[in-house]
Write a protein that binds this DNA or RNA. Structure first.
Lengths: 187, 187
DNA sequence: ATTGGTATTTGATAATTGTCAAAAATATTA
DNA sequence: TAATATTTTTGACAATTATCAAATACCAAT
């Protein structure tokens, strides 16, 4: 559990009581490469915290898997739309390597919010960070060229390159593997 | 104030006490077309709620104004990155028409959160809705063609088309005005 | 209504990125 | 290690979108 709380304290430090209550709700699970965390069509009822490992979110389009995000250690992940709305997920989540995650059920989170104001504050702050991240990705996607997006990735999140096959990264950047290969060859 | 609370109750209903406290913090301001709500380089210290009217967020790139979002009545708006981090905003916010907005200072919001747990819940829920919206825009920007993005706009937010000049809409869709004009001509 | 300014459309051309096919490189399994 | 499958690269060509320039339409102010 250590890494979990150590990381959480970077967002907003919880009281011992709240930490214990959170610990009660969270279940630690191991996964192996290519294991499925969520399958499209199912409702995502958990918020996950990645203690170690890596995974990707993808959806199917014309028979192709379009990877649109990655998660690594110390990330919170879920199929956000499904988790919030309770509707079926349109995406899949699959592990890229052996990983250890903490799963926290949605109802338990609601209980935590009711019992410990501070846990809701923590989540509010986490949302703020993730919103800013997404905003930046949106601006990149809409207003930058493929080469600029790749450069950005090199600068800001180079660890993605070392741990993820290029094909997934191409989709993540919104380009084809061929185009990514050409961008790389002329740098 | 009515429209404000009526709308807020759609997210999460506040107690009378919390509503009154919120009312204490919020200042109603009128603006006219082309008035500036925020100038790049300044820190955005307010969360705004648009009671009536419309505005746009844009940044300058190579001498051009790139409009990347709009706000209309019943929207919460702010320069999110600046508001959250306290850093200088990279974007401008300008009114598209006569508008009435409520401004809530960031410190007051923090006080509200401390005094009324329910106000922080309200904001947490608002964040969820806005995150989902942004996620959808991101997927559109990255994985859909210009024509598909325009079609999507027609279907989902046609009011934008009737109230905003095409040039701004083109930037919002991530294309040039010429391309938008051609897409429209062949529908 | 007329004038001047701005927004939108249209045309010609260029740049970027995608598609399809095949070769080369890399990883996986027997 | 060899054999097979998968991933990445390379090439030729096509589609999409951008750029630049000019014409037309629209709007606001006189």
């Amino acid at each position: 559990m250590q890494s979990f709380f150590k990381h959480i304290n970077n967002y907003y430090p919880l009281s011992i009581a709240a930490q214990e209550a959170l610990e009660e709700c969270a279940v630690k699970i191991e996964f192996y490469k290519n294991d499925i965390l969520l399958k499209e069509g199912n409702v995502c009822r958990y918020l996950y915290f990645i203690e170690s490992g890596a995974l990707r979110g993808f959806y199917n389009l014309d028979g192709k898997e379009i990877t649109h995000w990655f998660g690594f250690e110390n990330d919170f992940v879920t199929s956000f739309h499904s988790f919030i709305t309770g509707e079926a997920a349109v995406e899949n989540i699959m592990f890229l390597e052996y990983s250890v995650v903490w799963a926290i059920p949605k109802e338990k989170i609601q209980d935590l919010f009711d019992q410990f104001h501070e846990t809701e504050r923590l989540v509010r702050i986490v949302y703020e960070k993730y919103y800013i991240r997404l905003e930046e990705r949106f601006v990149n996607a809409q207003f930058k060229t493929a080469a600029e997006r790749y450069e950005n990735l090199l600068q800001q999140t180079p660890h993605i390159l070392t741990r993820v096959p290029l094909g997934y990264i191409a989709a993540y950047l919104g380009i084809t593997p061929e185009t990514l290969s050409r961008i790389r060859s002329r740098v």
